[in-house]
Design a protein around this nucleic acid. Structure first.
Length: 725
RNA sequence: GGACAGUUAGCUCAGCUGGUUAGAGCGUCUCGUUUACACCGAGAAGGUCAGGGGUUCGAAUCCCUUACUGUCCACCA
C-alpha cells in the first residue's frame, strides 16, 4: 500500500467497478443474492437537475446526502432504488439557449423558426445532460443508471398527456380568461411562483384626477382609468357615494369617472384614493371583478401602448412614461413627485423580463374545485370522498402521512397553500410538452393521442415545466402503466431537495400523486439548505465566488468534498463551504488510509488453535465501538447525517487512531504471547472493518479501496458497498 | 404587514427532552523528525453562551422582552 490514497487515479476505477457490477440496481442485488427478494424497499428519486448547464455545489450536497441515505439503506439489507434523471426546465432552458444564440449570431427565435430552435435546444440539452451525468458519477452516486429518465422523453411525455387528460376530464383543468403574469421578453405567461420581486427607486407621481389626487408609479397605464376607488370609511371622501359619476380632464381629454368604495384601500397610502387599471394589475383586477367593472387593455403583448393612448400609441411603455408626465405637467395635472419612492417590480426569475400583467386566455389547474377522488389509498380519505386539490395537499402533511424535515417548514408549506390560487400551466414557449388538446372550428378534443380525421390543429401552447416534474416520483417508475416498479417503489421513501423549491416542486408532486394515484409521493421530505461561500455569500457568477464541485474533487477527492458538505450542515439551514474545510476532510481520508495501512501491515493470519485472550481494556474498546455504531445508526435513521458523520469522523480519528492503535501497537510487535497478540490484532481488525462500514456511506471511495486490501478472511462480500451494516 | 430562523472561543459550527470546571474543527502558541500518517502526534492559550427580566435547588438549554442579522410569504396604488 502506498502511503496515501490517490483519489485522482483510483476514484474513477472504483466507480466503474461498482457500476459494472450492476449492484446499483436492486434487481441485480436480488438476482445475485446480495439482497433478499422479500426485503423492505427504500426508494428515492434524484431531483432532476435542469439541463441549463452544469452542477453546482448545491447539487453536490444533494447527491452526497442522497447517496449516504441510499448506501446506508442498501447496507441495512433493503431493496434500495435511486433513480437518476434530468429536467428539461422548459422556460429556463429555452431562455438560456435563446440568449446564447442571440449573443453569438444576433438571431432571435423567430429568425430561426420553431423547428430549428428546438433542434438547437435539444443539442444544448444533450450536451448539458452529458456533463451532468458525468458529475453525478464523479460524486460517487450509487444510482441506478439503467432507470435514467428525462422529464421530456417519450415515456414522460406519455405520462404528462395522460395526467392532463384525466384532469381535463375531471374538470380540474380548464381554459379561461384570467389576469396572468405576462413576460413580454420571453413572450409567455409565467406562474405566480415563478416571479421574483425586485425593488427599484421609481418616482411616485401625485396626479390630479378631477377633484381627487391619486398617487401612481406607473402613469403609462393610466389612460383608460375611469374608476376612482376610495375606502368607504375615509372621511376625506365622505361626500362621494359609491357610483357617483364625475366628469374630469385627463391625459387625453375628458373622461367620466365613477366612484367606487372598497375597503381594500389603504387610507394611509398616498392620498387614500386611486384609479384602477384592471387589465394590468392584480389588485385592480380583483376590485374590478368584485364590482363588475369594465376592463380594458392598454398595453399590448410586446409592451407597446394601444389605441387608447392616443398620441402615444405604438410607443414602448418605458419610453412613453417621461413624455406622458411631461404632457400631464403641461396640463397642470401633476401635483408633486416623490422621488424617493421604492417600487416593487415583478420579474420572471427564469431569465425573462419585467412582468406586465395581462388578461389572457390560458389553461389552469383548479385547486379549489371539489371533485370525487377515485382510488384513494390516503389514510383518512376514502375513494369517492369529495375533496379539492388544495385539501389533498394540505391533508397529507397535516395528518403526518408526509413528514417534513425540519418540521418548521410545515408552517411555510401551509401558508403557501392558503395563498394558493389556480395554477396557470400554459406557456407560449416552444420547448416543452405541447398541450394535448386539438381544435377544429368550434370543436375541442382532449386526449392522450391526436384525434382521427383531418382538419384538427393542436393547441400551440406548452406546459409549465413543473407539470411534468410534478409526476416525477411515479412517471420514472413507469406510470401510467401498472409496472412492478410502481408497485414496489411507490410511494418513495424520501424526497431530498432544497427548501427553495418546496412550492414549485414538492407541493406539486404532492398534488399530482394524491390526485392521480390516490397516494402520497413520498413519506419524508428532507430539505437541505443553500451552500454558500466561506463568507456566507450566495455563490453567483457576478460575485465570482462560484466553486465548481469538479475542481474540488480533482484537488481533494470526492470523499473529502462529500464529507465537507455534510458536516456542519443541518437540514433546512444554509451552510458555508471553504477550501480549508475540504482540505481538512481530505486529511481525514489520508488518515483512514494510513490507520488501515498500519493495521494491515501488522496483520498476521491467525494460527490454528490459537485463541485470542482479550484484556478488559480490549473488551471495553469493542464495547465503545458498538456504542458508537449504535449512535451513528440512530442518527442516520433520523436523517441526522450531520451528527452521524461527525461522530464517525471523531471516533475514527481521535479514538481509534489516536488512542486504540497507539495503545495496542506494542502488543503487535513484542509478540511474546500469541494469544495476547491475537487479541490486540482482533480488536484492531474488528474495529477497522466495522469502521469502514460506518464510514462507507460518507466516504465510499477510500473505504472501498481499503476494503480491497483486507485479507480474505476479513471480507464477506465482493464490495464493501454490499456488506451488512 | 405576517411568518420562520439565527446571534456560543479570532473564524466555522456542536451542544438532543435544563444537571458536575461550556465542546469540536480550522487558526494561534509551545514541544516532538518513536519505522501508519507532518495531509502527523502531545500540550496550551482563548468564551460574563447578543442585552434585560423571569421560572427553578440549578439555564447556553424553558418563558417573556429588546436589539441586530438573514430568509420566506402578502393585492400598499
Amino acid at each position: 500500500m502506498e502511503s496515501r490514497f490517490n483519489h485522482q487515479t483510483e476514484e474513477d476505477k472504483i466507480y466503474e467497478s461498482w457500476e459494472k457490477s450492476g449492484f446499483f440496481n436492486p434487481d441485480v442485488c436480488v438476482d445475485k443474492g446480495a439482497t433478499k427478494s422479500d426485503a423492505d424497499t427504500f426508494s428515492i428519486v434524484l431531483p432532476p437537475p435542469n439541463v441549463t448547464g452544469t452542477l453546482h455545489m448545491g447539487h453536490a450536497a444533494m447527491i452526497a446526502i442522497e447517496d449516504i441515505m441510499v448506501r446506508f439503506e442498501r447496507m441495512k439489507g433493503k431493496k434500495t432504488l435511486w433513480i437518476p434523471g434530468t429536467d428539461h426546465a422548459a422556460i429556463a432552458t429555452q431562455s438560456k439557449v435563446e440568449g446564447i444564440i442571440y449573443k453569438k449570431e444576433g438571431k432571435t427565435r423567430h429568425d430561426l423558426g420553431r423547428e430549428e430552435l428546438l433542434r438547437r435546444i435539444e443539442e444544448f440539452a444533450t450536451e448539458s445532460h452529458d456533463t451532468i451525468v458525468g458529475q453525478v458519477r464523479k460524486m460517487g452516486a450509487s444510482i441506478d443508471w439503467t432507470r435514467e429518465a428525462y422529464t421530456f422523453d417519450e415515456k414522460r411525455n406519455f405520462a404528462v398527456r395522460t395526467a392532463f387528460k384525466r384532469m381535463y376530464d375531471d374538470g380540474l383543468i380548464y381554459k379561461g380568461y384570467r389576469l396572468v403574469n405576462w413576460d413580454p421578453k420571453m413572450q409567455t405567461t409565467v406562474a405566480d411562483d415563478e416571479i421574483e420581486w425586485i425593488e427599484e427607486k421609481t418616482p411616485l407621481y401625485y396626479l390630479k384626477y378631477g377633484p381627487f389626487t391619486i398617487a401612481t408609479a406607473r402613469p403609462e397605464t393610466k389612460f383608460g382609468d375611469k374608476y376612482i376607488v376610495v375606502h368607504p370609511e375615509d372621511p376625506r371622501y365622505s361626500q362621494y357615494n359609491h357610483g357617483d359619476q364625475i366628469e374630469l380632464e385627463w391625459i387625453n381629454g375628458k373622461v367620466v369617472a365613477t366612484v367606487i368604495k372598497d375597503d381594500c384601500i389603504d387610507m394611509e397610502f398616498g392620498t387614500g384614493a386611486m384609479t384602477i387599471t384592471p387589465w394590468h394589475d392584480a389588485t385592480d383586477y380583483d376590485i374590478a371583478s368584485r364590482h363588475n367593472l369594465e376592463k380594458e387593455q392598454i398595453i399590448d403583448y410586446r409592451g407597446l401602448l394601444l389605441d387608447i393612448a392616443g398620441e402615444f400609441k405604438g410607443q414602448h411603455i418605458k419610453k412613453a412614461r417621461p413624455q406622458i408626465i411631461e404632457k400631464l405637467q403641461s396640463k397642470g395635472l401633476v401635483e408633486k413627485i416623490d422621488e424617493n419612492y421604492v417600487h416593487k417590480i415583478a420579474t420572471n426569475m427564469r431569465g425573462g423580463g419585467i412582468i406586465e400583467p395581462q388578461i389572457k386566455e390560458q389553461w389552469f389547474v383548479a385547486v379549489n374545485k371539489p371533485f370525487k377522488i377515485k382510488n384513494s389509498k390516503i389514510k383518512g380519505i376514502n375513494s369517492g370522498d369529495e375533496v379539492t386539490l388544495k385539501k389533498l395537499m394540505s391533508y397529507v402533511v397535516e395528518s403526518e402521512q408526509i413528514k417534513i424535515i425540519p418540521d418548521r417548514f410545515n408552517k411555510t408549506y401551509f401558508q403557501w397553500i392558503d395563498n394558493l390560487r389556480d395554477w396557470c400551466i400554459s406557456r407560449q414557449i416552444w420547448y416543452g410538452h405541447q398541450i394535448p388538446v386539438w381544435y377544429k372550428g368550434k370543436e375541442v378534443y382532449c386526449d392522450v393521442t391526436a384525434p382521427e380525421g383531418a382538419g384538427w390543429t393542436q393547441d400551440e401552447d406548452t406546459l409549465d415545466t413543473w407539470f411534468s416534474s410534478g409526476l416525477w416520483t411515479f412517471s420514472t417508475l413507469g406510470w401510467p402503466n401498472e409496472t412492478a416498479d410502481l408497485k414496489n417503489y411507490h410511494p418513495t421513501s424520501v424526497i431530498e431537495t432544497g427548501y427553495d423549491i418546496i412550492f414549485f416542486w414538492v407541493a406539486r408532486m404532492i398534488l399530482m400523486s394524491t390526485y392521480l394515484l390516490g397516494e402520497i409521493p413520498f413519506e419524508n421530505i428532507y430539505l437541505h439548505g443553500l451552500v454558500r461561500d466561506s463568507q456566507g455569500r450566495k455563490m453567483s457568477k457576478s460575485l465570482g465566488n462560484v466553486t465548481d464541485p469538479l475542481d474540488l474533487i480533482a484537488k481533494y477527492g470526492a470523499d473529502a468534498v462529500r464529507l465537507s458538505l455534510i458536516i456542519g450542515a443541518a437540514p433546512g439551514n444554509d451552510s458555508k463551504l471553504s477550501e480549508d474545510k475540504v482540505k481538512g476532510y481530505r486529511n481525514f481520508a489520508t488518515k483512514i488510509w494510513n490507520a488501515s495501512r498500519f493495521v494491515l501491515m501488522n496483520y498476521e493470519a491467525p494460527e490454528k488453535g490459537v485463541e485470542p485472550q482479550f484484556t478488559e481494556k480490549d473488551l471495553a474498546y469493542l464495547k465503545e465501538f458498538d456504542e458508537t455504531k449504535d449512535e451513528i445508526t440512530k442518527s442516520l435513521d433520523k436523517f441526522d447525517l450531520n451528527r452521524a458523520g461527525e461522530i464517525a469522523y471523531h471516533y475514527f480519528w481521535h479514538t481509534f487512531a489516536d488512542i486504540i492503535i497507539e495503545d495496542l501497537k506494542n502488543r503487535l510487535r513484542e509478540n511474546a504471547d500469541k494469544e495476547n497478540r491475537l487479541a490486540a490484532q482482533t480488536v484492531l481488525t474488528t474495529i477497522l472493518s466495522g469502521s469502514l462500514k460506518l464510514l462507507h456511506p460518507f466516504m465510499p471511495y477510500v473505504t472501498e479501496a481499503v476494503y480491497r486490501e483486507l485479507p480474505e478472511e476479513l471480507k464477506k462480500k465482493e464490495f464493501l458497498m454490499l456488506e451488512n451494516w
